[in-house]
Structures are given as C-alpha cells and as structure tokens.
Design a protein around this nucleic acid. Sequence first.
DNA 1: TTTAGCACTCCTGTAACGAGAGTGCTAACC
DNA 2: GGTTAGCACTCTCGTTACAGGAGTGCTAAA
Lengths: 345, 345
Amino acid sequence: MGPGLDDRATQVLRYIVEDYIATAEPVGSRTISKMMGQALSPATIRNIMADLEEMGYLAQPHTSAGRVPTGAGFRYYIDYLLARRTLARGDVDQLNRAAEEGNAPADELVRQVSRLLANLSRQTSVVIVSRPDHQVLRSVNLMRAAVDKILLVAVMQGGWVQHRLIEEEPGLTGDDLEKINAYLNELAGGLTLPQLRVRILTELRQEKAQYDAVMRRALTVGARALEDTASGEVFVEGRANILDQPEFAEDVHRLKRILRAFEEKSVIFRLLDRAMDSKAIQVSIGPENPVEDLGDISVVASGYRQGESAVGSIGLIGPVRMDYSRVIPLVEYTASLLTTMFGQR
Amino acid sequence: MGPGLDDRATQVLRYIVEDYIATAEPVGSRTISKMMGQALSPATIRNIMADLEEMGYLAQPHTSAGRVPTGAGFRYYIDYLLARRTLARGDVDQLNRAAEEGNAPADELVRQVSRLLANLSRQTSVVIVSRPDHQVLRSVNLMRAAVDKILLVAVMQGGWVQHRLIEEEPGLTGDDLEKINAYLNELAGGLTLPQLRVRILTELRQEKAQYDAVMRRALTVGARALEDTASGEVFVEGRANILDQPEFAEDVHRLKRILRAFEEKSVIFRLLDRAMDSKAIQVSIGPENPVEDLGDISVVASGYRQGESAVGSIGLIGPVRMDYSRVIPLVEYTASLLTTMFGQR
DNA sequence: TTTAGCACTCCTGTAACGAGAGTGCTAACC
DNA sequence: GGTTAGCACTCTCGTTACAGGAGTGCTAAA
C-alpha cells in the first residue's frame, strides 16, 4: 500500500504492529503465518521480516526473540496502513452527554470531557488552554477583593473565566468601580485582552481622557490589570492509567520520569503545543515528541478552536504502543466537541 | 516515658521506629545495641523486643528477620515519644515567600504553597477547600456569559473566587444587570452564600419588593443562582513523590490503588475531612484513616480557618513509615500559614 | 538480670540447567 | 526463482540447588 514496500511486506508489517499493540510482546514468524491463514509459511515470513528489519521498520530485542516495530515502523503504519476505525456509537453518546452538562462552568466541563476521554482510551488525557490571550472577551468586571486589592474578572466568549489581582489605585469607592466597569465594558466588546489593553492605551492619549477623571482612572486601572499576560491552564486526567501499560508498570524509573512530567505545566505545554496550530491531528511517536527526556511516550493530540483562532489542544499521552486506530478518532472527535462547545456558548 | 513501658523498652521502641523510618528495612537487635552505644547486648535487646512484640508494638515479617513497628507501635511513638523537631529556618522562609507572592489569585497561591510543602516533605501534598459555603462574601457580581447564560462571580473575604452559571431570566439588559449587582452587593456584605440566599428570600416577601420590578428581578435571579451549593475543591501536588518510597515503588498494584485514589475528589475529601474541625493536627496511621481501601497509607493533616470558621484542610499523604517528627511541624506551620493568608486578604 | 554461645530459620543472590520460543541458513521442492 | 522444510543455534525464563548472611530463640553460665 504505502511506498517502498510490496503488498506482502506491507501486510506483514501491519500484522506485526497490530499484534504488538495488542500484546506488548515481540511477535514471531509463526504467529504472523497463522494470522494470515497459513498463506505463507513461517520461513517465508522470516525472510520478509529480515527485509523489514533491514529497512528500519522492525527491531529485535535480542537474537532469538520475535520482532518489535521501531518508531519508523509505527510511523509507516500510521501514515499508510492505519484502518481508521469509526467511533463506537456508545462512546460518542457518552462524550456528547459529558459536554452537555448544563450549568457547569467551562473549566469544569473541560475537565469532565477530558476525564471521560481518559477512561474511554485507557490512557492519560491532557488538555491545555493555552492562549487565553487569543480568546475574545464577552465582558469584564472589577470587583473589590481585599482592602487594597481589586480583582479583574474577564468572561470570554467561550464561557471561560479569568481572574487577575491588582493593587488598588487608592481610594476607589464602590460607585467608582461601577462606573469604571461600565466604561470598560463599552470598550471591551469583541476584543481579546491584549487588544483591549492597546485600545485603552490609545484611549488614554485621547484628549477627552485628560478632562474626565473617572475615565482616566478607569483606563489606568484597566491598563494595569492587563500588564501581564495569563499563562494558560493544564488539566491532566487518568494518570493512573499508565500503570495499566506493562512497559511502564515494570520500570519504576520510567514511571517516575513520566509522573514528574505530568506535574510540570511547561512540559505538558511543550508536548501539546505543536498540535494547536495545525488543523489535522498530530501524532508524535516516541522520540518525535518535543521533550527529549520523554522519548519513550507517544502523544496523540489535536487543537481546538474558538471561532477561528486556536486556543488550546487536547490529547492523550501513552506508550508508543498505543491503539492508534481507536485513539485517533477519539481524540479527533473530542477536539471537535470542544470546538463546538466553545463556539456555542 | 509513655504508659505501660519501662524506660528501656521505650527507648528500644523509639530507636526501632526511627531506624525503620530512615531505612524502610526491618531492624535487628545488633543495630539497636550499637545505636545505644553498646549499653546493652544484642541478646538483651532481643528479650525486650520479644516483649514489645507480645504487646503488639512490633512485628516480624518472618522468623529470622528484624522487627518492624506495627500500627500500634507508630501510634505509641507519635503519642508519647515523638521529639518534635522545630522547623528549619530555611523551610519557614521558603513557605513564607511562597505565601507572599503578590498578585496571584487565592487558588494559585494555595497551589504554590501546597507544592512547596510536597517538595519539602518529599510526600504528596493535598489541600481541600471544603466549605465554600462557610466563607464570608466580600462582593458578588452577575456577568453575561453567553446569550442565554449569566455568570455569578462571588469573591470571598479570603480572596477566594467562585463562579456559577445560571440560565438567564430572559431579556436582561446590561443596565439591568448593573442595577441588580448594586442591589445584591448591598445585601451581601458579611454574609455567606447560603445566608445571602435566605436574606434574599425574606426580602422577596417584603412589601416593597412587590412594587419595584428591578428589585424583584434582582432577587429572583440571585435566589436562583444560589440554589445549589458549591462542592469544594481539591489540589494534589507531588504525586510522583510516592515513587520515592520503596514500599510503594515495588508494588504496582498498591501504586495503582493510591494513584486512583488521588483522582477521586470524594476519596481525598474523606481522608482530610476529619482534620478540618479539630483544632489540633490529625495523624491517621494506616488503617486508622477513614478509607478502608487505603489501609497502607498515613495521613497527616490539619484544618485551616478563615476567621473563626473552618473552611478546609491541608495535609500530606504517604507511607505509614513517614518521618513524623519532621512532617508534623511542617503541616502545622503550613496550615497556620493558610489561616493567616485567608485572614489578611 | 545480663549475656555469650549456638542451633535454627529464612531470605537473597548465584550458578546450573532444561524447556521453549524464535531465528538464520541451507538445501530441497515446485 | 520464489517457497519451504529441516536443523543448528541463541537467548530468555523459570526451576532447582546451594552457600552466605542476617537475625532469632533458647540455654546455660556469669
């Protein structure tokens, strides 16, 4: 099917990858011969396997073990051989139901969907909300949070909520706040946070701002609140699932490395960042993923959008030996679900 | 020192517990004899050990292994023998610094402190914010969140923020919202959310509400927003630390059980709930903790307050063989830190 | 009451070994 | 020429045997 391999080699490769995905054990020539209905004898299969090994698609853990697909082998499988299974009706239903949960706030909803994805795939699910700055505002509000602190609350089009604390301009009354709020909301409609900031700064240079004290105050407070940009959020669900994978469960060291990675926001970001901008789903096999310390895991991820702009991505993290035919459509569907979720709200 | 044991037995028990905490291995009579400066021979120690075993404080994994403290042994140690180490200056400084981080919102701050606690103790740190309903309001605000949804944002005295989504009363303009906000804030000062709800309901029955349409609307929207109570939040930090404990790292099954527990909010709640109301720090050794499935872990936890009312608790989860002399003061201090954090803001 | 001495138990690591799975190569077969 | 049966070879894995070590319990002497 794919380039560089004849029909038989292609089939053998496919069987090996699929059996390996199912069993996590090296697969031998006898097994493949049986799978193919004895059409070819084990000896013939062995010849083909030797060829595939020479081309870099297979490897032997040791001389007299069966073959294991290499990274390249998995890559070939995914690019050319993958029979994309359609999603089970039940899975779709469950996901839809999780996304519909009426009055949960956006973050709760995302967490629920992500958790379900983790359960369905038996892998670890990760969501990043990575570009709060690309999200479009619906409304903003300043609230008193402490004697000397004000809280800026921003509600985004998708229903996402952000806060930031700012030191208070001394002496603001509740009435002042209300006026400022009204004024800010007038400016804010349809802008992103950084855009709002620019807008405020230009407004401040306008003449009328010079004469209206409240307005000036509103603008300076607003500008201050928007000085630093938000860093984004990460949700990880189903960490315990990696223990179902024999390749990780065996090896404590590996396990620790991975669990530590899950605790570092920045690492998660690096893993999923790439998927955010590309339209298609991204599969990073082992060392293909951007974190060198995690060369033994795969990431299947897809960005989701709010309207036109990419705001985050969702994905699964697991062993290289993942069931891609099942997992890829799952992630795709979930990502599209998030996109519509954020679109509608 | 403690009841029921003479001086020597007490000392032997202490040494065994401390050595076992340090090494995670059964400790033998020779080791103890050396630790005591050869004051007693191994044979004597063995006699004492046999006594301690009979009393239920020690156990042998098998004949001809050293002794291991039982749950009762640890309990005795903590109740009567624990030399509470004072906190290292450096640890205190680090914690203070983490808690001071100027403009982070409350949840971020709590997460940081918790993470640091996990690092300092090399255990898994858990915080629950368990009684959002006991926290006193500073201000509330209704914001438009979608075409047909309104977001209630409540800022608590401690700087904590809560949201809830509500279906919109049809046809509210921005102006209406502002008026409602002003009105609600007038009512809200110093109340908890459920108290506010009661207040609103009585207000609704008052005569003047009958004649003022905006007010009536404000009240009904407000009442609706407060119908369901918030469930509280959980932060877990330092999960990977349990892999540093040999007793867990060895045993995948155990590990999985614990990691799964960390993913269940309700389980975490059950583990830490008890600590919330008692003034003193709570130590649950192994099977003493309220989750029967987790009879092989210990929980050291302490509640923290906001003003007078208990609003949550913070603790460490780890093996029974924890370094209590270090961990207890750490948790105590961190809890007090949270209390002052929430008091000041 | 303490302790030296000793037999005994149990774990742990190592080595030896056979069974099993799988390979590569060669020679025969179609 | 491609395919395959046959076979020697390699490597893993589980079992067994065995020696060393750590630690105990008991007895008898100090």
